[in-house]
Amino acid sequence: MATIDQVLIQAALKPEEATKGSGVPAIAVDDLHKSFGSQKVLNGISVAVNRGETLAVLGRSGTGKSVLLRLIIGLEEPDSGSILIHGRDIAGLNLDQLCEIRMKMGFLFQHAALYDSLTVEENVGFPLVHHKKEMSKSERADRVKQLLAEVGMEGHLKKMPSDISGGMQKRVGLARALALEPDILLLDEPTAGLDPISSGEINDLVLKLQAEHHTASIVVTHDLHSAKTIADRLALLNEGDVVVQGSFEELQKSDIAFVQEFLGHS
């Protein structure tokens, strides 16, 4: 039986590998605008993430971090601006093509969004049931166990989402996001509500995926320590735009008042 690492490494050698190093970012968001009614949420935001790179997105609540992630996976449509995934503009795609791209993306929702009528095990198995039809039941069960072990949830296979804590739901959601060995990870506050030990494990997991699978990740977080640990770059959002982008040290050196205030309060 292949270990998760082997599976991930194998997957890493597949076609998208070609774009790695070829200069095409895995995710390229350019001049994105998004309003809800009269409320302007994103105001010309641009970010790019290469394969094997992790971008941490920071910002106050309500600045549109979750909306940014939802736009990238096509759950919302931008008012203007473009989103390129591996160089393909998702705006022009029909549903089948969009699904093809989504299969290679892992998405962790801010509130986990587990299917409340399915057990933990079935939640993590959901993408496998629908997209890995060639997998036998026992192969799938093994894979689900591996995934749950990665996030430290292997002891809760049969529980319903309503019977586990918010932090545990988050971890199950992360396992579900990793089920199809995505090469792009969009994580909305993966460590929020977790104890320091669990959040350290999540950080290690993200780092491992990045190293072994060359995952391109965007991680929304309020946890500066976690951002410092896992991210190559940090982007600080305010009022729908990136205020500053760079390594943690570069952010610390910034003389923009908002940046200092943000870092100072954390």
């Binding site: 759950l75 969009l98 699904c99 989504r102 969004a113 299917y115 993408p127």
Partner: peptide
């Protein structure tokens, strides 16, 4: 409706399932 407001329907879509 409760699946929609808890983003479960979005999660189905994000898993590339209709």
């Amino acid at each position: 409706a409760s699946m929609k407001v808890t983003e479960q329907i979005d999660a189905i879509e994000a898993s590339a399932v209709s």
